[in-house]
Write a protein that binds this DNA or RNA. Sequence first.
DNA 1: CGCTCTGTTGACCTTGATCAATTTAGGTGG
DNA 2: CCACCTAAATTGATCAAGGTCAACAGAGCG
Lengths: 269, 269
Amino acid sequence: MGFLSRERVLSMPTRKLESVVSLNDIRVACKACSLKEICLPVGIDKDDLDHLDAIIDRKRPLARGEHLFHVGDNFQSIYAVRSGSLKTYTTSEDGQEQVMGFQLPGELVGLDAIAENCHPLAAKALETTSVCEIPFDELEKLSGQIGGLQHQLLRVMSQEIRDDEQNMVILGQKSAEQRLAAFLIGLSNRFRRRGFSANQFNLSMSRSDIGNYLGLALETVSRLFTRFQNEGLLSVDRKHIELLDRDQLYTFSGAHCAADEAPKAQTEN
Amino acid sequence: MGFLSRERVLSMPTRKLESVVSLNDIRVACKACSLKEICLPVGIDKDDLDHLDAIIDRKRPLARGEHLFHVGDNFQSIYAVRSGSLKTYTTSEDGQEQVMGFQLPGELVGLDAIAENCHPLAAKALETTSVCEIPFDELEKLSGQIGGLQHQLLRVMSQEIRDDEQNMVILGQKSAEQRLAAFLIGLSNRFRRRGFSANQFNLSMSRSDIGNYLGLALETVSRLFTRFQNEGLLSVDRKHIELLDRDQLYTFSGAHCAADEAPKAQTEN
DNA sequence: CGCTCTGTTGACCTTGATCAATTTAGGTGG
DNA sequence: CCACCTAAATTGATCAAGGTCAACAGAGCG
């Protein structure tokens, strides 16, 4: 820790960066962004997209371990991950951490800060990560004018509630192995949606983060990985995961998840 | 079961009711509602309130056990509880139920249905319960016009995300006793906000519902109630709870809950 | 080359689930 | 009003899942 002690540069007053990444590289309009069909702009027409684009700020990437915001920070903006990944977490008074979620490209962070106007969670980069900053008051103003944007914003928030509910099911009544299986299937689905491989990916988070997120001891996570590997469900090499028997894992997870796109046909509607 | 077999009347085409409760009793405008400072109308001015009021539908109360909506029901409206209480839950394919939450007067249900346009959870009355139905497309249209309403809607959804996050902490890393203590403190806070007694209330839900919600066996819940009672923290008589040592319970819950109004001074900001 | 951080594996123990037996309350019908 | 029935709650006894403690092994970095 500490060779890069200027954390939180993102929330510092804007300053020119002539460093590693040139501003031109960062300035990619929503229109040209491969993630536009995943994050906010879904279903917004071309003209309106320009308006949205105008309020979005692209910043220099965060280094691994750098914070996007801290607990209690004043709420100004929500953020969309462009590349890399984040974890959000709180620290309870006795100092122990609770990981609340991981954010992949195309996903938004900070929606939980609207209510109280300050961030209840901290967000930290798990690897080199770049984000789009979306000033919330401007977004709100804009979404009053653009019907599609308002609807999309509500949809995204609703989806977040839904995902959290899904997590409650997992934490509330699944066994350790079901939790890890569900976690992996969930990640896999999210990667696939973003155009990454669904069966082969790197975990940017530590075993400890996974365990913490799933309400398990890190040792349990580790044991389960080796067990899943022995059973031929997947292969693990440190951070790299390859899912070998996705169906079996899915069954294992005891899923029914309205939230994920289920690999089997819908039985009701 | 079954003397009242006409469930889901609420979602049937409107029909005149000359029965138990007269329509005049039900027709209470938002303006006159004691809950308006809790549910949606917060911070909306008098004129706009009339507009909001115009789209809200007040229905005859639900009987205990009746459903407000079922899993998979088409999403039309969100609902605000006026009196009584609801539980929301899903049923996994193996038939077991997961209770996702309890709704008290002034709280909204159905926000998680916006994303997919259908209800991921069922909502069932725990006792005689009346609700306001708020057609969502009209609400959305209105909130494009009334800035305060849009903001309030986003705030409420954000708060819901926050509460769910809080629940994840509880399910993810608290002991059985901490969970129950946190649950009781949480309920108590919610009752207080609504003008009910904070230290004395009735649980409209069964031990089994509580256990399910908290990720505990119902036997564990029962045992904890008697233990808390023996320790002088509270007194239980079947459904009736009296909190005798709220501070101790609060400490017990291992809380830090940015979500609740903490009884101690804030240490940071 | 050694230090530290992350991950793996093993041994043991605690918490809370499960199974089972009663008790109590509330609702129903004679 | 009482006897009966069922659902909810309590309490006890047992057991297993997973947490905790501890030792060790690689990987990455200075």
